[in-house]
Nucleic acid binder design. Structure first.
Length: 299
DNA sequence: ACATCCCCTTAGCC
DNA sequence: AGGCTAAGGGGAT
């Protein structure tokens, strides 16, 4: 059945939230966004202060969506705290209502492992291929969707099948991590009770998870809003907007090279956490999407 | 122990 | 249209 979630003057913008590159399972057709969330096919649209949605097999509740879109976050307060200068201020002005999504932990771990050195359009295809090959088919609204594979589905997959989904050199790492999660050797759910540093340490023990992937998992599915993921875009944004917080030598060196070392990552990421504070992850997402949308809407 | 260099698949984009 | 780059990470040196 069709549900309506009343936003009650809560700042929220569905477009910015689904377009900003944090999730890979949503596509817009006409007025509706279609996606797959926790084994459900779902469609959703925003009309003013209301969210309309319908899912199949009809188990997505209003409460679930409130949690998924983090509607309990006091966004006005968060944006007030991170609004430290004209750069992030411009992003907030342009993207007000963008929210971090609270993603499924298992799916975000695998998704961001797959995202290593891959463009966003290509990530979406990899995730879709994995779901087509190893997930469950769900028909809804005259379309076919595929749920995200379970740990056992991926753990029991053949390496060649994963590579055929477009995982490339990430296939071995994804397979190994899936086996560890599936066997209980890696306690994914135990991360929930840990601090940012503790959980990050655990995630880094997985082959295929470095600082960037760990920060994405921490931010997007472990409620660590202080996490500040630094990819190639954020590297340029931070060193471009805030060079005065680094030595000229550091800025020049890091901008000149393709990839950054763990130490360089830590310098940039910890700057973000200190400069923007406990909600640094929100600042990251606003800066990231604002910079990228310049290109996306160019032509 | 720590840092740097080099390699890794694949595909979308210019 | 071929080259470059991509929400990086691991391993050798």
């Amino acid at each position: 059945m069709m549900f309506q979630l009343d936003l009650k003057a809560t700042p929220f913008n569905l477009e910015h939230t689904l377009r900003c590159g944090q999730v890979f399972r949503w596509e817009k057709t006409g007025d509706w966004w279609y996606g797959v969330v926790s084994d459900e096919a779902i469609k959703i649209r925003q009309i003013g202060g209301a969210l309309l949605f319908q899912s199949f097999p009809d188990r997505v509740s209003i409460e679930f969506l409130k949690s998924y879109f983090r509607l309990d976050d006091d966004l006005s307060k968060i944006l007030g705290e991170i609004n430290r200068d004209e750069h992030v201020g411009a992003a907030i002005k342009a993207l007000n209502g963008l929210r971090i999504i609270r993603q499924d932990l298992w799916e975000s771990l695998i998704s961001y492992m797959c995202a290593a050195h891959v463009s966003i359009p290509a990530i979406k295809n990899v995730i879709l291929n994995l779901s087509k090959g190893l997930g469950k088919e769900v028909s809804f609204d005259g379309r076919v969707f595929y749920t995200f594979p379970k740990p056992s589905d991926l753990a029991e997959a053949r390496l060649e099948d994963l590579k055929r989904c477009g995982l490339g050199f990430r296939a071995e790492r994804v397979l190994e991590a899936s086996k560890k999660v599936n066997s209980g050797d890696f306690g994914l759910e135990t991360l929930r009770g840990m601090s940012y540093e503790e959980a990050r340490g655990e995630l880094l023990s997985l082959s295929g998870v470095g600082h960037k992937v760990a920060d994405c998992v921490l931010l997007f599915s472990l409620d660590k809003l202080e996490a500040f993921p630094v990819d190639v875009w954020m590297k340029r944004i931070i060193l471009g907007f805030y060079p005065r917080f680094f030595t000229a030598d550091f800025v020049e060196r890091v901008l000149a090279r393709r990839s950054i070392t763990p130490r360089e990552y830590e310098k940039i990421s910890s700057f973000g956490r200190k400069y923007f504070g406990r909600y640094a992850g929100y600042a990251q997402e606003y800066l990231f999407h604002h910079k990228r949308s310049e290109k996306l809407y160019q032509g």
